[in-house]
Amino acid sequence: MDGTARIALSAAATELLRLLREQHGPLMFHQSGGCCDGSAPMCYPAGEFRTGSSDVLLARLDVEGVPEPVDFWMSADQFERWQHTHLTVDVVPGRGSGFSLEAPEGVRFLIRSRLFTEEERAGLGG
């Protein structure tokens, strides 16, 4: 695919996704925009979180060692605020939401962001 990727994975996130895939099957992310844990990306078994017209599919992430893409969804209002940023899914020690699959592992996913460069913005199209 040509163009700018909106989302990347850190090495730690890639490793954790491989582990979670082995344990739970196909995966997906959703990031709402709520406060506290709601502002962190939540990892679910694919299809367990019901997405709708108020959600945007940002990427179908290819994860080395995972046979199918991991869809990354974000609420539309959150995307409105973050549409000019490149996001990196990372992992840090600590307890995240009890609803996200990584919680029992003693770590949590988080988003690191930076503004797109002019060249990257041009590559987004639209």
Results as ranks from 00 to 15, higher is better:
V89E: 00
C43I: 03
G47P: 04
V56Y: 03
G38E: 11
W82G: 03
S100I: 05
G65M: 07
E118K: 14
L20S: 07
T14R: 15
H30V: 12
S39A: 05
T14N: 00
W82P: 05
S100F: 00
W73D: 02
D62V: 12
E48Q: 14
M42F: 11
F29Q: 14
M74H: 05
P69W: 03
V56K: 11
R6V: 15
H86Y: 12
R60S: 15
M1I: 11
P67I: 01
R50E: 14
Q31R: 13
R50D: 14
G34C: 02
E102D: 15
R21I: 01
L17W: 11
Q23F: 00
T88E: 12
M74I: 13
L110H: 06
E119H: 04
S113N: 09
L87W: 05
S97K: 10
G126N: 10
P67R: 07
C36M: 14
V107M: 02
G25F: 06
T88P: 03
E64T: 11
V89P: 03
G123T: 11
A59G: 00
G94V: 02
P93H: 11
L17Q: 01
P67A: 05
G33E: 05
C43P: 07
D62N: 07
E68C: 10
R112A: 08
G38A: 12
A40Y: 08
G126L: 12
G38M: 08
L110Q: 05
Q78L: 04
R6S: 10
R95W: 06
P41T: 03
F109G: 03
L101W: 06
S113I: 07
Q31Y: 01
T85I: 09
G125V: 07
D71W: 07
R81L: 05
P45S: 08
G25T: 02
V63T: 04
G123H: 15
C36E: 12
D77N: 10
E80Y: 08
E105L: 09
G98Y: 10
S97A: 03
E80G: 06
T4K: 03
Y44F: 15
T4L: 02
F99I: 11
L57V: 08
M74Y: 05
E64G: 09
M1T: 04
L17R: 04
L9A: 00
G106M: 06
G34W: 06
E48G: 02
S97P: 03
S10E: 09
D55G: 07
D90W: 09
A13E: 02
Q83L: 02
S75V: 00
L19R: 14
S54D: 14
T88Y: 00
G123C: 09
V92M: 08
S113H: 15
L115A: 12
D2T: 13
T85D: 13
D55Q: 06
E15Y: 03
S32K: 07
S53Q: 10
R18Q: 15
G47Q: 08
S10Q: 01
Q78R: 15
G34R: 08
D90K: 03
E64A: 06
S39I: 13
F79D: 14
R60F: 00
S75D: 10
L124T: 13
S39Q: 14
G106K: 06
